[in-house]
Amino acid sequence: MKRLRERAMDKLYDVALDEAAGGKAPPDLVERVEQALEENPLPPLEDDMPPARWWFAPFGTAAAAAVILLAGYLVFTQTVGRDVANVNSAYSPADNNAAPAMNSSVTPRPDTNYAIVRSVSDLRALGDDIAAIQCDGVGLAEVSEIARRSFPSLTQLHFVRCDFDDRAMDEIKTLGALTQIVFEACNAITPQSLVKLGEMQNLKTLVFRRCEKISEADVASLRATRPDMEITVDTDMSAEPPERE
């Protein structure tokens, strides 16, 4: 830890010296950011829908009526038990097509395999190829949604200011492919959670940053049982200032 800190300090002075000596300086990014936002905007989902045309209105109404009638017919036939086989064969193709269509409308750009989420609806918008998720201020509902989706490619989870307690570990534990979890300012998590996290065999990196109830002493037994796991605990700086040079 001390060696890493010394390396970081050296790097900090190198960066500042580059600037102080006139060699390198921070760029002005305003134009670049504005251009990037204009070139590739990500509007809210409702804005993705094309604007309605006035001449389309009668067709839209007719289509809606047809869907309602079809749904009524399906309910009716299922209820009275008539033409069950026909109903199933007519219903299944549409049902099978529904999932990919729904996913394709909300899946992020294909060149991204990470996401920053704040809610269950954010998570629902993710594709199955997601590899890393940063969760800001999420609660048990979002963790349950992650577990429910069981993203097959998900290897990294980063929770910031999470609003859940140890109960969430039962859900997180089900994500067997995870190799790295970071908890940052997650103050409801207690050392009880370490037992469950220790059961995750693929988990190789576990970081607790400014989590009030987790200290170095708490992770000692987990370190002993899981020597293959890199565990980092950064305690709250106001409670324990980093060592001085």
Partner: peptide, 27 residues
Amino acid sequence: VAYAEVADLLWEEQAARDDGEGLVQAL
């Protein structure tokens, strides 16, 4: 990852209050 965590703490301690400008000027 471990280095990044340490570097982040160092930044908070040494540079976060003025975005590192104070260190540059002092140097």
